[in-house]
Design a protein around this nucleic acid. Sequence first.
DNA 1: GCTGAAAGGTACTTAAA
DNA 2: TTTAAGTACCTTTCAGC
Lengths: 170, 170
Amino acid sequence: MSPARAAHYHGGMELDRFDRQLLNLVQEDAGQTAERLAEQVALSPSAIQRRLRRLREAGVIQRQAAVLDPRQVGRPTFFVVSLQVERERPELLAQLRRWLGAQAQVQQAFYVTGEADFVLVVTAPDTESFDALMLKLVEDNPNVRRFTTNVALSLVKRGLTIPVPLDEAD
Amino acid sequence: MSPARAAHYHGGMELDRFDRQLLNLVQEDAGQTAERLAEQVALSPSAIQRRLRRLREAGVIQRQAAVLDPRQVGRPTFFVVSLQVERERPELLAQLRRWLGAQAQVQQAFYVTGEADFVLVVTAPDTESFDALMLKLVEDNPNVRRFTTNVALSLVKRGLTIPVPLDEAD
DNA sequence: GCTGAAAGGTACTTAAA
DNA sequence: TTTAAGTACCTTTCAGC
């Protein structure tokens, strides 16, 4: 690989301006047709479809997911949990990561710097359900030292959108 | 509305077992065909499609979004920010919510109980970009008192999936 | 290489049973 | 709800840039 390419290398394919426009559009609405996308990107529908397929195959687009209204599925409450662990034993840390990954109620989990070691975003139908999950957390994972919970009173914003700059420079 | 219905009422349509199965499936993969969904839910493809359309129209499915690989779009870093504000002036609070909603780099924002008032999940290509955003935050919003940042060293899990129980009882 | 245009194939939608 | 006809979309091919 040439140095010029290496400078832009992120572990995947090169993205030109069209790809970047497409990525921004499909993050907001992955359901629209190639024809409608072609109206917003100066490209023909078939070119759009070819590029989207390439982006999927390269793993730039990992998947497309339906986003539900939390209230309409009886799960209106979100919790933000900060977790502190005993870090002396790496194998317990790996176990905790697997545990978090396996829990459907855990939407997101970040391993972070700072006072907390993990930050979680958790959904639950009510406080009891949440408490039960946290009890299971400490029971199943002996290296969890303590955690603090913030109950979300309202959702200001909720998404996974990553803004993709159109200029190649990041 | 009868009391029996009111007990299950979440502000939207009633969901039977088939709907709930479908919702769980399309949250993981919204791209699969009705035929493939029909293999997993004991229903014909046309029944599947009709139900999905109803769920979209009722707003249970808000949208479908492409999920990108953060590394491949040059935005590998996540930050979890806890925000404390002066709460005396409600109009400033509303302004802050609008500001957060308008920032593309802010993926998620929760208004929470506890020591922090807001918890944010922010993406940025690097620390400088993140710092610039935080500077803009305090400049544009005079009621921001202080904030603490946790840099995500790794992503354990990342999604918006809400597990939908198949039994009507939550 | 990548594009746009046309043919073909697949999946969704609609209407009837 | 299933089935079948009709429609819309995606995919492939090919010629040209």
